[in-house]
Amino acid sequence: MQFINTRPADRAQALTECLVRSGIQVVDLPLLELKAFPYTEKLQQLYAQLLETQIIVVVSPTAVNIGMQYLQQSGVLQSQLDHIQWIAVGQTTAQSLEIYGIQSLIPAVESSEGMLSLPIFQDLPHLKKIAFWRGEGGRQFMMQHCLDHHIEVLNFLLYERYCPESTEAKFSQLVATFSKNPQIYWMCVSSEASWKNWLSLCREHPCLLQSCHYLVLGERLYQVLQHDKNNAQYHFKLSKILNLQPNTVLEKIAELQREL
């Protein structure tokens, strides 16, 4: 059995090690690379508004690290944000916040829908201003939901996301291996951006695309893949997962194999 680990290079190790210990061969193929945007006057103005903000949503460990670095640069003291409720998209992001002494709420499902299901969002009339520490292209659904409920959104674009240059060469190796030995691969899909990059890579290799069982994070992303599958008449399997913790991924694979 082989698993394609598409996580960014700095987040892939824990999952790879967990799977390898369980006898699963892992192909490292990062579909996203993250690079900080420069600190700008616009970001300076956004940081100043955090003093009047009720919630900060942090979408990744990268957003934590860049966001806290720029917070220091802004001149706003972390102690001035004690009134804020922090929300982390998942356990790893929450652990990154804990390094800075910040406790955060964590959703059961590590997705926008999961965060919106937190009790704090059930009392929307009392929410006036919310900040998002995020990367380019991320959390559009959640931000739009807040805007639709007349909540002011502070959009902190902290980093860009793109497919690494080295991935194309790694993908060519994967295609060569697959051509010699066709098999079923397992893969996590954690964002629409990474899924689009995978579709682009597989444009001329539909057999490989359809030889994967996709473990999809959250209902909304699951529906994106289901739509693309139906629209292009692909034949691949997909299943939902609640989070990207290595044990969760491993247990889901084991569960699905028992059902075969």
Rank of each mutant, 00 (worst) to 15 (best):
S191R: 08
V109M: 10
V175Q: 06
K229H: 10
A193R: 14
I106V: 15
F236Q: 02
F156P: 03
E255A: 09
Y47G: 07
Q140T: 10
S194L: 00
Q173V: 00
S104L: 04
S60W: 05
L15S: 02
K170R: 15
I99D: 10
L15A: 06
H227T: 13
L157G: 11
Q140M: 10
Q233R: 13
L77T: 12
Y234F: 12
C18F: 05
W195P: 06
L250K: 10
E165T: 09
V153D: 02
L250M: 11
L215G: 05
E251Q: 15
V59L: 11
G90Q: 01
L19V: 02
L157W: 11
S112P: 08
L208R: 00
T93P: 04
Q54F: 06
W195K: 09
V59H: 08
V57E: 08
R258C: 10
H149G: 04
T6I: 07
H150W: 09
V58W: 02
I253Y: 00
R21V: 04
H213D: 06
L147A: 09
R11G: 04
A232F: 14
I151P: 07
G138L: 09
M68P: 03
V175T: 02
Q103D: 13
I66G: 02
F141K: 11
S96K: 15
H150D: 14
G23Y: 07
I99A: 11
F3D: 03
Q103A: 11
A9L: 13
C163P: 01
K42R: 15
N230T: 12
A176Q: 13
Y47T: 03
P125K: 03
M143V: 00
K240G: 07
Q103R: 15
H126A: 14
V89E: 00
